[in-house]
Structure formats: C-alpha cells, structure tokens
Design a protein around this nucleic acid. Structure first.
Lengths: 329, 329
DNA sequence: TTGTACGCGTTATCAA
DNA sequence: TTGATAACGCGTACAA
C-alpha cells in the first residue's frame, strides 16, 4: 500500500505538503501541487480514511436506529434520512434493534467508541429518555418520528396526537361511535400520543371508548387480516377503526371483503402514512399523510449544524399531518 | 477523554497489559486483570475504535449497495443482510445509488480508503463487471440478487431465467399467448435473465412475443396503475403480463378493476417476490417466491469466511424460486 | 510557501 | 506473565 509518505518521497517534498494538496489547502504553489498530483495519479495513491478519522476524531458517518427495516414506513424514513446525510457528505450506518434492549445499548456503546459521529433515533427506544441520555452523554443524539419530550435531545416529529384526534372526530361526527384503535407498540411515545388524540376526541363529544377495542402488536398486512377475522367472526361491536398503518388497513379491508362486510357502510377504516397501497385496495384507504421529506431534510440539516456548532438546549419541531378521506370511511 | 494510557498509569501497569485485558488475551494474571478492570470501570474508560481500526486495518463494517431503500423488495433484502452481518459482529453502511454512476464510484472509493471491509452489491451496477472489478481490486465485493457471471466476484442469486420461463409457460399453456413483460431497468443482468426466460418459453411453444409489449421503467404501484390505464384505454391486444413485482401487479389489478376488466377471465397477471400485498388485492396475486432469507444468510457467512481466509476463485450460487398460483391467472 | 516534529489511541513484536 | 517500543497513516502547530 502506498502512503502519504511514499508520495512525499517520490515528489521530493514533505508529508505536510502532500497533505495540503490532498486537503485542497491554499498556500501551495501551483507548480508543487500539480507535481504532487501527478505522482499521486501515477502510483494510484488513495488516502487512508481511518488515519484521517483518528486524527480528526470524526468518522463522517451517522447511525440510524430503527426497529426493523423490513417495513413500509421505516424503509421510507431511512431512505430519506440516508439520502439527506449523503448529500451532506455523511454515510449512514443502519441498525435494526428488533426491539432488543441489548442491541440498542450496543449501538450507544459504539457511539462512545467513536464509531460514528451521531445517532438518529428513528423510532421508540426500549429505554427511557433519561437512560438514553445517560448512555450517550457528550455525544449527539436526535430523535426522529417519536414524540419525545425534547428535554434530553432534539426532537423532530409529527403532531400525532392532534391529527389522530381529527381523524377520530371525523368518524365520531359521522355517527360512527364504536371505534377501535390499533398500535404496534402501545408503550412508545408515538402510540401514546395517538392514543391521547383518540381519547380526547371521544371526550370532546362526551363519549366513552371501549378499552377492549384497543389492539396492540398490530403492524403488518397479516396482522390486519387476523384482526379482521377476529372482529368479524366474533361479531365484536365495532363500527370503525383507526388502523395504525395503511398496511394494517389493507389487511382489515381484505378480511372485511372475505366476510362480506361492506365498507364503509358497515365498517369504517382510517390508515396512516398515505402509502401507495392505499390506492389499490377496494375501497381505497382513507389515511393520514406525514411530512417525511420535509422532516428528514430539516433534521439532517440540524444534525450537521449542531455537529460543528456549540452546545445549545434541545429543540422540538412538530410537523402537521393531514387527514385524507378516500373510500374506506 | 480517558485513554488506555491513563488506565495503565492509574493501574500501575503498562499500556500493553491494559490492551491485553481489553482484548481478553490469555497470559494475564487474574489479579492484574481484575485490578485493571476495576480502574476501567471507575473511570468509565471506553476504548477508541478508530485507533484499533487503524492499527488492525479492519473496520468491522460492510457496505450494502442498493438503488433505493424505499422499495418493498430492497428494504427486505437489506433488512436480512444487515441482520445477518450484525449477528457476525459487523455493522452495515447502507448506500443508495439512485442509479447514479457517480454515487456508485464514490462508494468504491470509500472502499479503497478503508472505510469498510467489503461491499455487498445488492442490485445491478451502473458499471460493467470489469469496471467494478477494476475499481475494487484487492478488495472484497460480493454480488447479491443480480445474475452476474461469477468470473470477477462471487455471486448469490435466484434462478431468474428458469423461474420466469416456468411462469411464462404456465400462461402460454393455458392458451394465454399475447403476453407483456415489465422491467424496472431492462439492462440489468437480472432483468436480462428474466427476459431470456420469457423469450425461451415462447420459443419452446413455437410462439412469438411482441416487442411492443416489453415495458421498461415500471417498478411502483403508481407505475402499474399508469401502465394499466395505457393498456386498457388504448385497447392493446394483451391477454396477460409478467409484472416484475407484486407492487406493479397490484397497480395493474387496480387499473383493471377501474376499467371493468375481469381478472383472470380477460387479463392474467403474475407478480414477483410473494410480498404480503399479493394477499390483499382482489383477486389475490399469483407470484414468484424468492429465497431471500436463505440467500442472505449464506452470503454473509461466505463474506466473513472470505475476509479471514485466503484468496480463491469466485463462486456462483443459484437459488430456486417457485411459481405460486393464486387468483390473478 | 514549505518542512520539522509531534500527536491521535490503539495493537503487535520482541525481549525480559 | 509483563513492559518497552515501534508501528498504523495522517493532520497540524510552529518555525523557517
């Protein structure tokens, strides 16, 4: 392997000069620069990033933490985050926690060991905010998508509570009052926010919701199908449901069709995320749009700024989702 | 920041001994070991991975190259690959090329600069095999999912040609002979293999295919819908289609429904990948299963072995997909 | 504009 | 079982 020292020797200059050429420093004569560049080309010199990283204590890489990448929402989120990072000269290390506390802690350890410059926590943590903060002290962590408090680290998320309230109110106002609610992990800040919105919409109308109709651990198409079978076979008294995701909604619709339940006449459904799948079911899925593109772009901008800049108190930025009415309600 | 040297000083031993403790080397007395471990705990010492990586010329990270992560197939593929790497103690850096040659070359440059130990090329390259080999000489590259030759680097892929031939033959044998074929990027080895299978099924029956019915750049639900509108509005003489993906198939079905075209009576569809979406359309989608789990596990095992072991001639491993008949044909 | 000399934090080699 | 010392390849004050 040819090193910076070899290039220096072959060019008849010092390491420092070669280094300056590599880094595009000024104060190098045009003559020297071209001479060095020539030698570099001739010998196919490639700088070693590890040495540079060690010296500068910067890896130019950012870790993204998600529960699972094999998922229509998270894959989209990571796609945008990763692209935004790349645009700023950073590469992204993807970590799937599969909701394992051990894996999550592993990642925080890697952060402490300087294996990346920051973590984007793009999901709920299996730890409390305080614990996360403790594991990552003096390092940079940003929460994306989850409704954290904003006291320990910066937060970028959707107005989950408000928009869920709006969607729920839409159904209630149509006289559809026996409602169900699906979540993947009900303990996460995101799902808690949605649940709050679901409840407060009931409160405003002076209605009660049925705790038996809060379904947890529902996240895939298959889960939606199974839940539908349960609802329609056991003849649960549910008239509508906030589905948690468009994929779950698609499964529910499929199950309703199988059981000859007319949608929206006898059963109403609202999904989440405005995924293209909501266009191909019959009927099409009413859903809630997110602001992934805007959110991820601004988040990454913020991370980069913060990496160079000074410490400041955390910020929390909230984006507005919107209810989109189609055929399923 | 507390370094290995600080720990050595505070423990009253040398750097070397501390290093041995960290690395779980033998030949350290139990007494010394526990003493050092104590000091490390007290001062919350965390080793710096960058220094270790520089010294050992190993990053314990592997890059995965895909065109786009916001995609039902690639997100699944990366999910499995990433999980398999993690299980072997490697982290994964995800790079989306968006089919940009420049971005792809960037990644190869990073490989040369030792920013990761290997690349898994999980898609078609924008470069020829020779070019990729040239950019990555002396480094480790493995192809996943694409039907490369196996002369320049190791290849793990599906029997795309054979299985596409079977699917095509299934339709032809039912008397459905005016067939279309969708691809995302027709120039990729994968799509070329599928096309070969499509054609050879026709050849075996002594039939011709219509070149006007080879549709390129079709990959999303929306693309499928648009293509359906074109087919049904312009009354193209197509009786069936090999859709390239279940998402495209879902879009086509939606469009057929919109235009009152009965499936499979008047139009047949076969998708790819056996994604859960094939369960929620009406009718359900006939499709082709892949072997992602087996393929990715064996591939990662192979990468790891090869990283430690000696050079050997590349291998090519082919997995068998299967045609799954449901309602759409 | 260029060169000298040192430091980044760790592991590997060799000798004791 | 331990320690001294030399790498690993590069960036950067500081001096010239």
């Amino acid at each position: 392997m040819v090193t910076i020292y070899d290039i220096a020797r072959l060019s008849g200059v010092s390491k420092s000069t070669v280094s300056r050429v590599i880094s595009n420093h000024p104060h190098v004569s045009a003559e020297t620069r071209s001479k060095v560049l020539n030698i570099m080309q001739q010998h196919q010199y490639v700088p070693n990033s590890l040495a540079k990283q060690l010296r500068q204590k910067q890896t130019k890489s950012i870790a993204i933490l998600v529960p699972n990448l094999n998922h229509p929402y998270f894959s989209q989120l990571v796609s945008y985050l990763s692209a935004a990072c790349y645009a700023k000269g950073f590469k992204t290390v993807v970590h799937q926690t599969f909701s394992s506390k051990q894996i999550e802690i592993d990642v925080y350890t890697q952060l402490q060991r300087n294996e990346f410059d920051a973590i984007i926590l793009a999901s709920s943590s299996t730890l409390s905010e305080e614990e996360v903060a403790a594991y990552t002290e003096n390092k940079l962590v940003i929460a994306c998508n989850e409704d954290y408090s904003g006291t320990y680290f910066d937060v970028f998320c959707l107005n989950e509570e408000e928009v869920t309230m709006k969607a729920t109110a839409y159904l209630l106002n149509k006289g559809i009052s026996k409602l169900g609610f699906c979540s993947d992990y009900i303990d996460s800040p995101l799902q808690q926010a949605r649940l709050k919105g679901f409840i407060s919409a009931h409160d405003k109308k002076g209605l009660n919701y049925n705790k038996d109709f809060l379904f947890n651990h529902i996240s895939t198409i298959e889960d939606g199908i199974k839940l539908g079978e349960k609802i329609f076979h056991e003849h649960l008294e549910i008239e509508g449901i906030i589905a948690g995701s468009d994929f779950v909604a698609a499964g529910l619709i499929k199950s309703a069709v199988n059981n000859n339940i007319q949608i929206p006449q006898y059963f109403s459904i609202i999904g989440f995320d405005n995924h293209p799948i909501s266009l191909v079911t019959s009927p099409q899925i009413s859903t809630i749009s997110n602001c992934i593109q805007e959110m991820t772009t601004e988040l990454v901008d913020h991370v980069i700024r913060k990496m160079n800049g000074s410490k400041q108190t955390p910020i929390k930025k909230v984006y507005n989702g919107e209810v989109i009415i189609r055929g399923s309600c």
